[in-house]
Design a protein around this nucleic acid. Structure first.
Length: 520
RNA sequence: GGUCCCUUCGUCUAGUGGCCCAGGACGCCAGCCUCUCACGUUGGUAGCACGGGUUCGACUCCCGUAGGGACCGCCA
C-alpha cells in the first residue's frame, strides 16, 4: 500500500517518453462543461472534432467536465447530448464523466509532489491574495517562493499536522520556456517566467481543471486536442504537466472565437438565446443548415463552396483551413428578422427549398403535430396533395415554423384573413360577386387542372370587365387569407376544387355580411 | 497592468510575392421574370487598419503604431 519510490516513478516517466504519439489512430474529444445549454461555439468545436475524426477514420469522444457540481445537473448534461444528437454528431465510446476520475487525478498530483515538480502551498487565502496582487503590480507571475523553498520534510510535517494547503505546480525557474506547435497558430512558446505556479489540488484535495484535463486526455489517449482559443495559454501549463509526468504530448490546435456584434465573447448572459443551439432547433432551423452554417465560421474549404453536405464537409475539412482571426456572429436583437445571423437564416431557407421533399415531410408533420394541425389523412388518402402543398409553399419559407404560421391556411379551414390583405385585395365592391362567379364556374367545370383554373379566372375577370389581377389577388386572399403566396393557379390546384369553392363562397358571404353591417 | 494571439467589403470568407486597380457568399440597391410575395436571374454597392521598411514588384515578408481578443482563480 505504500506509494512507489522515486526511482521507480522516474523509470516509468522515462518509459512513457519512449511512446511516440505519431502513428496512432486519431482520437479527438469534445469536452464541454455542463452549463444548461449547448453554446454555438461549443457546437462548432464539437463539429470540427467530429469532422476530423470522421475524415481520418478516427474516434470522436465525449467528456463531460462536471466537476462543478452545482451546474452539473442531469438537465444540464442532457442539453449537451440533445444538442449534439440534433446536429448529428455521434460519439464513439461511452461519455467519460470527469468527476468519476478525481481519484486518478489526485494520484497524478501526488506523483508530481513526489517527483518534486509540485509543492504544497500553505499560504492562507489572504496571503496568497496579497502576494498575487503584488506580483501582478510588479509584472511578475505568482510564485510562492517561501513555500517552494520548504524542505520536503518540513512540508510533509505541516501537511501531516493537518495544515491546509493547495498543491501547486513548481514551474521551472532559471530560464527556459514551454513550447508547442499549434495546428492553427503555428509555433508558440512562453517563457517559464511568464507562467505562474498554478494550482493542481485544492485545499480540500480535489483536483483542479488544469490537472484533470491533462489526466483525462492522457487516459483517453487523445491524439489531437482541438478546442477554443480561450484555452491557448492554458496549453503551456498543460504541457508542463505532461512533461513532468512523462506522458506523450498530444497535438494541439486552437479555434478562433465566435464574437458577438459588439466584439465581445458570445455569452448567454449578455446575448441571450442566440448563443444556444437549442434555440435554433426551437425556432425551426434545420440541423443540416445550421451545421453547414457554423462549419463556415472560422473555417473554409479553400474554394468558393458554401452549401455542403455532411459528406462534403467531412471530405473537405482540414486543420489548415481554419482561420486565425475571430469570427463575428452578426445578429441584431432589435430586429426580429435578424434574431440570428442573416446568413444562417438565408441558408436555412435554401435548405428548406432545396432539400429532398421526402426528408422535409416528416419535419413538417412534426411541426403541424405540435401546433395541433396534423391530420392523419395527410399521410394516407391525402398524402399526394399534402406533398404538393408542402412543395408549393416551402419556396418562400425560412424556418419550419413558417409551415404552421404562414402555412396555416394550407392545412386547415380554421384560418383568419389578414386585415391588411383584405384591405388591399378584397375592397372592390364587386368582389363578392366575382368570387361567387368563380366558385360557380369552378364547381361546374368539366375538368379541374392548371389551364382550366387559369382560363376560368381570367374568364370571370374579362366578363366582369376587370383586369385579371383583381380577381387573381382577390381569390388568393379569399383562399388563403393572405396577400402573398404561391402562384394563384398552382395554389388552386394544390388546395383542390372543393376547398376552393367553399372558401370562395365563405369569403364572399363574409364580405356581404360585413358590408351589410357597415351600412346598417 | 503583464504575457500572448489576431487585423481583406457591414458580416462570413478566398488569397501563402507578380494570375488581384483583390474573388465568392450573406445583407443592401436596381433591372429582368410576374397575378402578389418570394425564388431565380442579371448588374450594382462596399474591403487589403495605419506608417515605415525589404523587393524590380507587396494583400501577401519584416518592424512599429493603432484597434480588437484571450489568458493571468483553490471556475471549467
Amino acid at each position: 500500500m505504500c506509494s512507489p519510490g522515486l526511482a521507480e516513478i522516474k523509470d516509468v516517466v522515462a518509459a512513457n517518453k519512449e511512446t511516440a504519439m505519431t502513428e496512432q489512430p486519431v482520437r479527438v474529444r469534445f469536452a464541454p462543461s455542463p452549463t444548461g445549454y449547448l453554446h454555438v461555439g461549443s457546437a462548432r468545436t464539437a463539429l470540427f472534432n467530429w469532422l476530423y475524426a470522421r475524415q481520418k477514420g478516427g474516434v470522436f469522444l465525449l467528456r463531460i467536465e462536471d466537476t462543478d457540481r452545482q451546474r452539473s445537473t442531469k438537465e444540464s448534461i442532457d442539453a449537451i447530448f440533445d444538442g449534439l444528437r440534433w446536429l448529428g454528431l455521434d460519439w464513439d465510446e461511452a461519455p467519460r464523466y470527469q468527476s468519476e476520475h478525481m481519484e486518478t487525478h489526485r494520484k497524478a498530483a501526488q506523483t508530481m509532489l513526489e517527483l518534486g515538480v509540485a509543492y504544497r502551498d500553505f499560504s492562507s487565502d489572504d496571503e496568497a491574495e496579497t502576494r498575487r496582487a503584488a506580483d501582478r503590480k510588479e509584472g511578475r507571475v505568482y510564485r510562492a517562493a517561501k513555500m517552494r523553498a520548504l524542505s520536503a520534510a518540513e512540508s510533509k510535517r505541516r501537511a501531516v499536522a493537518g495544515e491546509p494547503f493547495v498543491l501547486r505546480f513548481k514551474v521551472p525557474a532559471g530560464g527556459g520556456s514551454a513550447s508547442f506547435v499549434d495546428g492553427v497558430y503555428g509555433p508558440l512558446s512562453r517563457s517559464f517566467d511568464e507562467i505562474e505556479d498554478f494550482a493542481l489540488l485544492r485545499s480540500d484535495g480535489t483536483p483542479v481543471y488544469m490537472l484533470s484535463v491533462v489526466c483525462d486526455d492522457y487516459e483517453m489517449r487523445v491524439t489531437l486536442v482541438l478546442r477554443g482559443q480561450d484555452h491557448l495559454t492554458n496549453t503551456y501549463k498543460q504541457i508542463l504537466i505532461y512533461e513532468a509526468l512523462g506522458w506523450p504530448i498530444p497535438n494541439f490546435a486552437h479555434l478562433p472565437l465566435i464574437l458577438a456584434p459588439d466584439r465581445s465573447k458570445l455569452s448567454k448572459r449578455k446575448h441571450g438565446e442566440v448563443v444556444s443551439v437549442g434555440a435554433y432547433r426551437d425556432r425551426g432551423l434545420l440541423a443540416a443548415a445550421f451545421r453547414n452554417f457554423i462549419a463556415l465560421l472560422g473555417w473554409s474549404p479553400g474554394d468558393d463552396r458554401e452549401i455542403m453536405t455532411v459528406d462534403e464537409l467531412i471530405a473537405a475539412f482540414s486543420i489548415g483551413g481554419i482561420n486565425k482571426s475571430n469570427a463575428v456572429f452578426n445578429f441584431d436583437p432589435a430586429d426580429p428578422k435578424k434574431w440570428t445571423d442573416p446568413k444562417a437564416i438565408w441558408m436555412n431557407g435554401h435548405y428548406l427549398s432545396n432539400m429532398p421533399l421526402d426528408a422535409l415531410l416528416p419535419l413538417v408533420k412534426s411541426e403541424l403535430g405540435q401546433a395541433g394541425l396534423w391530420d392523419d389523412r395527410f399521410e394516407r388518402e391525402d398524402a399526394r396533395q399534402f406533398a404538393e402543398i408542402v412543395a408549393l409553399i416551402r419556396a418562400r419559407f425560412y424556418s419550419t415554423k413558417d409551415f404552421v404560421t404562414l402555412g396555416r391556411p394550407y392545412f386547415t379551414e380554421d384560418f383568419g384573413i389578414d386585415p391588411e390583405a383584405a384591405r388591399k385585395n378584397l375592397g372592390e365592391i364587386a368582389m363578392p360577386d366575382l368570387l361567387d362567379a368563380l366558385a360557380n364556374h369552378l364547381e361546374t367545370a368539366s375538368s379541374f387542372d392548371l389551364p382550366t383554373a387559369e382560363s376560368l379566372v381570367r374568364g370571370v375577370a374579362a366578363v366582369a370587365g376587370f383586369k385579371a389581377g383583381v380577381v387573381i389577388n382577390g381569390a388568393r386572399t379569399a383562399l388563403t387569407g393572405q396577400a402573398v403566396g404561391p402562384s394563384m393557379f398552382h395554389l388552386m390546384i394544390a388546395l383542390g376544387r372543393d376547398r376552393c369553392v367553399s372558401r370562395l363562397r365563405r369569403c364572399a358571404n363574409r364580405l356581404r355580411d360585413e358590408r351589410a353591417r357597415a351600412t346598417a
